[in-house]
């Protein structure tokens, strides 16, 4: 009796979690499918819900992610390589390690404040894509570092030892043995970090404020908006039509994320030895 009771209790705990996920997806598709047309992707935001589209935020998101990746990948992978292969166990390196895991727990809105005060005002980058991308870089860097460290750790020591025994230097071993053997894990870590960046709203909202933008950014110093910020703006209107197009925006956002996550799984699967 009791045995079955607890079995059902624990099973329903996990099933309720998964059920909420299904309800969330169904609710959003049900609310938003009506507005999902080609025009929705190619129109700018408008004061009328049925004429509104997501061209500007879509372009802004694309710009932001490309710039963020450009900054994040070299810094993140270098830091991971340094911590795993080059650093000795001294105080300085211990501090870096603790620091990286602490940074991963800092709320994203705090990064927004950092970006606003430092990139926007101190460096006078304004409310630009560049300021947003630099802020996003600091935010996702811990994720890339930790994922890359894990990938690097999976490289078999015998492979490295063989290279060292042949007289290779640390950099040569890193370049020719470690990175080629851990590239799959590193890449899927990077893709996951970028999908985190695509969904982040708070730091960009702090830097860029709520804006009504009807242009595609043409360079890194332009003002911009991003998809989740546009969704937030529409969802906060007390108007059912705008809430409906907010859910259409969510459908597009979730579609992009599912695409990226599937790609990450594919990369990991493809590069497994």
């Amino acid at each position: 009796m009791k045995e079955n009771f607890f079995y059902i209790l624990f099973l329903s705990a996990i099933l309720i979690g998964i059920f909420s996920l299904v309800v969330l997806f169904v609710d959003i598709i049900f609310d938003g499918y009506k507005y999902l047309t080609w025009d929705f992707l190619t129109n700018y935001a408008s004061r009328k819900a049925d004429k509104s589209g997501i061209l500007a935020p879509l372009a802004g998101t694309l710009w932001l992610i490309v710039l963020t990746a450009l900054f994040t990948i070299p810094i993140g992978v270098s830091t991971a390589l340094y911590l795993e292969e080059f650093a000795s166990e001294n105080l300085f390196n211990k501090i870096i390690k603790i620091n990286v895991s602490n940074l991963a727990g800092v709320p994203s809105i705090i990064y927004g404040l950092l970006g606003l005060a430092f990139f926007t005002y101190t460096l006078s980058l304004g409310k630009s894509l560049l300021a947003g991308a630099l802020t996003m870089t600091l935010l996702v860097l811990p994720i890339v570092i930790i994922a890359s460290q894990e990938a690097i750790r999976t490289v078999q020591p015998s492979l490295k030892d063989a290279a060292y025994a042949l007289g290779a230097t640390k950099w040569e071993v890193s370049k020719k043995v470690i990175l080629p053997h851990s590239i799959g894990g590193i890449m899927s870590g990077i893709i996951l970090a970028m999908s985190r960046a695509i969904g982040e709203t708070a730091p960009i909202l702090i830097i860029s404020s709520i804006v009504f933008i009807t242009m595609v950014p043409s360079g890194p110093l332009d003002r911009f908006t991003i998809l989740p910020l546009q969704i937030y703006t529409w969802a906060s209107f007390p108007n059912d039509d705008f809430r409906a197009i907010a859910s259409t925006g969510i459908i597009v956002l979730l579609f992009i994320l599912i695409l990226m996550n599937s790609f990450a799984v594919y990369v990991r699967f493809k590069t497994q030895d």
Partner: peptide
């Protein structure tokens, strides 16, 4: 080459520390 790479990598590691210092001082100063 080895020394150059080591210092470049160390610089990357430093960025995470600078971020923390940046957060604390920006919040403090403002």
């Amino acid at each position: 080459e080895e020394t150059l790479v080591l210092n470049l990598l160390r610089l990357s590691g430093l960025i995470s520390i600078i971020t923390t210092i940046g957060i604390i001082s920006i919040l403090g100063i403002n």
